[in-house]
Structures are given as structure tokens and as C-alpha cells.
Amino acid sequence: MKKIFARKYLGIPYAVFLLLFVVAPLIVLFYYAFTNSTGHFSAANLIGFFTDSNTIGTLFYSLMLALAVTVVCLVIAYPIAYVLAKSGFKAKAVVVMLFVMPMWINFTLRLTALKEILTAIEGNLAFHPFINSVIGMTYDFLPFMILPLYNAISKLDGNLLEAAKDLGAGDVQAFLKVTLPLSMPGIVSGVSMVFLPAMTNYVVLDMLYNSTYIMGSLIGSYFSAYDWHGGSMIALILLLIICVFTLISGSAEEDEGQKGVLL
């Protein structure tokens, strides 16, 4: 009897930790979002968010930016992942490593490098804030898109492609009907690793002198103003978006170790 207990009990500290520092903060967040500074129930933050044209504009701008970044990342990452997965050259492992390695260099330092280059090219970054932000985020998030795509395309059964061709499909048709649908899990998990950070990572915008707010910057500004209630409501709305996103991609994300495979 005793032996079974010994292993099971090892999980208790972690369960307590999760309860205290993962579940409890979300409950507190919920409480703060729906109360005002006097501690009374209030839906003012919620109504305020959806009736203020500034915050709605921020939500819209974040979604547009995230969409643009995701599409650009996907368009750049897919061919790279495809070539990597299909090629049989000897140094493949090294090249894959080269594409993953930037993830291990501090992102603010990488952005500093990008910023200096963009400044040298454009002269003044302030002229193209949206495009610069898309470039910055693509630069930052690209490895996170390449890796899941590479994993998904590598796993693809080559026999299926041959079968498609034997049955008369052309290259394009075989790609559209076989390769693309089968790499869907990789696409979904890559998209979910890029889209959400693109809505919230306001440091990229700050560093590239884009002064427009995204959802993350709203939390930042409420934080600076010690407005916990307003910030909590933004955080809650973000959580809601994340939930919807996770549910949509949930079925394709069965591969729970996706991010855990990064190393």
C-alpha cells in the first residue's frame, strides 16, 4: 500500500503551487475586473471597454496586426519548413538548428539589432509604424512558426504523395489535396504560437517607435497608472480571446508537447 502513496504524494506541492499561483491569480483578476475602487460590483469596466472608441480601436488594431504578422510568418515559414523537411542533405540537422537558434538569444537584443538595421534603411522609423511592427514581430516569432510546421511536414507519409501521383494528380494538386491538409496540425499550432503574442507583445512596438496601442499596451498603461480594475478587465478580455482560440485549435493541438519538443 505504502509504495503507491509515495509516488502520488510527489504531485501535491505542484498541485498546491498551481492552485495558488495559476488558478488564484485568475480568480482575483475576475474579481477586480468586475469591481470598482470601493470594492462594489461594477460592470463599468466592461461597458467602458466596448463603448469607448479608443479601446475598440485598440482591439481592432491588435487583431489586424496579429493577422498580418501571422499571415506573413506563415507565408515565409511554410516554404522554409517544407524545403527543410523534404531535403535529404547531410547537414540538415545543422540547418534546422540554425533556424531554431534565434529563440535562445534574448528577444530585446535581437530587436535592438533589427531596429538599427531598419533605421539605417528607412532613416526614420516613425514613417512606417505598422509595417515596421509586422517586420519586428515576424523577425521575433518566425522560429515559433517554422518549428511546428517542420515537425508536421516531416511526419508526413511520403507514400501518400506517391499514391496521389500514381492516381494522376499533378504536383500542385497533390500539394493542395495531400500535403497541405496533412500539415494542418502544424499550421494550427504555429498560428496559435504567433497570433496571441502578436496581440500582446507591445515591447516590439515600443522598441520600433510605433506609439499605437495594442491590447498588451493597454494593460501596461493601466499598470503604470495603478488602475488594477481597468487592467484586469483588459486581461480578462484577452483571456477570453485566448480561450476561444484554444478551443478552436484544441482538437488539432492534441500533440501536447509541441512546445516541449523545442529543445
Binding site: P25, L26, V28, L29, L196, P197, M199, T200, N201, Y202, G216, I219, G220, F223, G231, S232, A235, L238, L239, I242
Partner: peptide, 9 residues
């Protein structure tokens, strides 16, 4: 979760 939300909460 977004790191901003985790940090803020």
C-alpha cells in the same frame, strides 16, 4: 496564456 496577463494577474 499571454505573458502580459500572467504577469499582471
Amino acid at each position: 496564456n499571454a505573458d502580459v496577463v500572467t504577469g499582471f494577474s
